[in-house]
Design a protein around this nucleic acid. Sequence first.
DNA 1: AACGTTCCCGTGAGCGCTCACGGAGCACTG
DNA 2: CAGTGCTCCGTGAGCGCTCACGGGAACGTT
Lengths: 334, 334
Amino acid sequence: MPANDRSRRITIDDVARSAGVSRQTVSRAVNDKPEIDPATRQRVLLVAQSMGYRPSRFARGMVGPGLTTLGLVIADVLNPFFPEVVSGVLAAADERGWQVAVYSTGSALERETAVAETVVNHVDACIAFLLDPGAIELIRRSGMPFVLLDNEHRPPAVSGGRIDFAGGMRQVVGHLVERGHRRIVMLDDRGRPDAGDRGTRHSLFLGAAAELGLPADESWVFPAANSLDGGAAAMDDVLDTGFGATAVLGYNDLIAIGAMRRARDRGVRVPEDCAFVGCDGLTLSRLVDPPLTTLTVDKELLGRAAVRQVAAQMTGAGTGETVIEPRLVVRASS
Amino acid sequence: MPANDRSRRITIDDVARSAGVSRQTVSRAVNDKPEIDPATRQRVLLVAQSMGYRPSRFARGMVGPGLTTLGLVIADVLNPFFPEVVSGVLAAADERGWQVAVYSTGSALERETAVAETVVNHVDACIAFLLDPGAIELIRRSGMPFVLLDNEHRPPAVSGGRIDFAGGMRQVVGHLVERGHRRIVMLDDRGRPDAGDRGTRHSLFLGAAAELGLPADESWVFPAANSLDGGAAAMDDVLDTGFGATAVLGYNDLIAIGAMRRARDRGVRVPEDCAFVGCDGLTLSRLVDPPLTTLTVDKELLGRAAVRQVAAQMTGAGTGETVIEPRLVVRASS
DNA sequence: AACGTTCCCGTGAGCGCTCACGGAGCACTG
DNA sequence: CAGTGCTCCGTGAGCGCTCACGGGAACGTT
């Protein structure tokens, strides 16, 4: 028994010929169809196995309806925000008998177009965290069911899942003001484009602060790379510039935690000298010291809702929007 | 323009007819082939778009080589062990131009067979964390390239990725003995079958302890559910039975952290009264309080190595084994 | 004027599989 | 012995697409 000839794959006809039966009989054996003699099935199966026969999923997909593959584009699995979304998507897709292909852009804007091109050619529907308008347009134009998540600049023609950070930021700032804070810094994710636009956490934070009578302006916002280290570095900036913040709001928990750790390392007492608040509500935020106050988002629900919207589009429904309401969970860091 | 007829999908011939050209011309337009008049291409593309035409990836796969889809079966994305593996697999698969379909068993042994069946029919190769021998056999028999990870009972006929916990456990116990500990408890994952066999962390821990002269036996091992809460509950058992442990080793970081938190909540000082050590080296373990000593495993490397093995099998190479060496990172918890 | 070239487009064939049908062989009935 | 039913198996057709080839029109060349 030589190794497989790598030039051409083994087909059902090869097996049929080798077993001295017809294609159809091989098909019956492989697919557990009833109209076949048990002895024949056994023999055919043995031949198939020994030849290393594996049915082509493409040929199968041609005749039957084939399996629906849902593409899920995320920035980075290592960012603890995404596993929860993935979990929701996997569960909801599984309920519908779909397969999920995961793509990661590695948080690199320039990779988004390449990923979008792959997605367009190889999946039946798509749920994506994307920022590059070109990449988004590419998928939109393909005409496949498409849900875009967590993008404040979503074109009106595509469905989306949005988190109501307007309400969320009011909760956060309200809480801090109530605790007596008057000088609040936000560590923004500098990786996101057009950060000054309406609808971003950035602008919603400033808006909420203004609403509550704080003299907030752009100087209250510090850019940070989206990681623990990014948060730490941004905290250095805040402390070094002598801004005098009594509270720090992170674009997300990762940034907030990184900042909080750096602050403590530099002798800042939390929350006495400075309070810290995050966004997203990662499991992680409960476990750090001190436990982090955070604007919790049900990320699993976000994933499930996205699948539901994709499914709706498949049955011909139009585009829509799902809004998730965040909830402020107050812990020891504020 | 009415909504799509959901009964039958639009084919290339539909577009051809509607645009008054041949199939081939449509194909040329859609695939950006050169042998076509730019004006015709534009017109055809417009028709195709308006009809909602999307090429069938199955039909495409029939003729060309098609895209390789790698199946990745994990227990649960929410378990922070897996995202790092997924990250490695995604990166390595991407380098080879493969797509990755992720499946989750939800840590439910009884779901493994169903997942295995899906995998067998819908992917070209498979990397899996599986425990059920039936599910494993199912994939093995399919003849597809297959790498089984983190399973001490792997059949010899399948490739695998293994973490050298024998050496790891010697490091852990050695470290604890050096610190003066003589009575060490292990919180084992009770979800894994045949926990008493050779090769499990459980037995390797007892072996290492015996090697170093400790009177270890089965009573030193407490079962725990694989989660933070599971670790906490197991810690309750340890404390309530009055075992008098001065050090606790978790099956993984999750269990160890859960246990450590519960211990502190009950007034145990860490590490003065009791030291804690985890396994896996999650990012998380650095951030908890106190930072957790842990046997760190390069999970991303594990994923990459698995992809490399799968690729090797595709080119006809036989089965093999990759061994990853863990490294003890000592922090404040011990 | 006859020929080659280039550009654009269409026609068969075939990828590997399953579905719908038909037919051979056997047993059992009236 | 014809008729009926059942079990098992094989034959065409077709899924939607691309590749290889060929052909017509318009141009330029000798």
